[in-house]
Amino acid sequence: MEYSADLFQPIHESERINSGIVRPSVTYWQDAWRRFSRHKPALFAAGVLLIIILGAILIPFFYPYTYDQQIRTARNLAPSFQHLFGTDKLGRDLFIRVVYGARISLSIGFVASIINLTLGVIYGGISGYIGGKVDNVMMRFVDILYSIPLILYVILLKVVFQDSIKAAFETTALRSLKFLGPELILIYIVLGSVYWVGMARMVRGQVLQIKNNEYVLAARSMGASGWRIILRHLVPNTVGQIIVTVTMSIPDAIFTESFLSFIGIGVSAPMASWGSLASDAYKGLASYPYLLFFPALAISVTVLAFNIMGDGLRDALDPRMRK
């Protein structure tokens, strides 16, 4: 085929402008935010969670009662304007106890998830990045952990260490942290250190998949260092999925804590989590059902909101997962 010279004319000015990129390019996060904000239920759930979190932080500062204040004249009162959720048998205001329980339960959800995240990302990342024999051995270990009923080990670890952690907080330098409650810290550690397995599997799968992509090969052939590949390619491409997994794991931790409280090895009085409030209420269920209703409602609304927000985040951050 012949190419004549007049085929190679510079384009006209107007044509050049028309084919130029007019709009600013949309980054991944802008795009994610756009998709997320279009998902109305998820946006609503995020709003609800924000209110719950802000309430948990702020309300105790100006509420007239404290969570352990016993009002002798106000025992077992039904909900009223004076006590929004009523009072328990010691005359403690249930509303502030639920608000305070939100601090405990949510902090368990967040802290346990952050520990999971750290352990899981490190373990799964190393396993997936190195690959080969190391990966094989590390994943067999994860397979074993995965088939163990982990809840039994949550219980076992709690039973085994609850005395020694109390002792440690009495005697060592940790004493200054005693206000947090040794039981609570143990729950953070136990939940965080047991449930990282799922995260490790997910991260490893992602890393394996991305590592073999052509653009990583291209980067490598251009002489990019291992760290550069990790920071520029692996991390940004897995972070969406990681956020989704973390969001979904927070309600699991809240659930597990309420279960532990119910069987008697959760946080101890006068501290209150939603689980321990519900568990205490069970004993007086026949006469004072509202004592159970409010903590139970708090758990359900929060868990539901996290799940809906997680769905929205998945659609927004990981468009490939969409139906």
């Binding site: 309600p251 279960f259 119910f262 519900a278 269920l285 758990i299």
Partner: peptide
């Protein structure tokens, strides 16, 4: 959805009540 967001002991409490 209610079933997966309500803890088991709450469900049992409601049934008992």
């Amino acid at each position: 959805t209610v079933g997966v967001t309500v803890p088991g002991f709450v469900m049992a409490s409601v049934l008992i009540y």
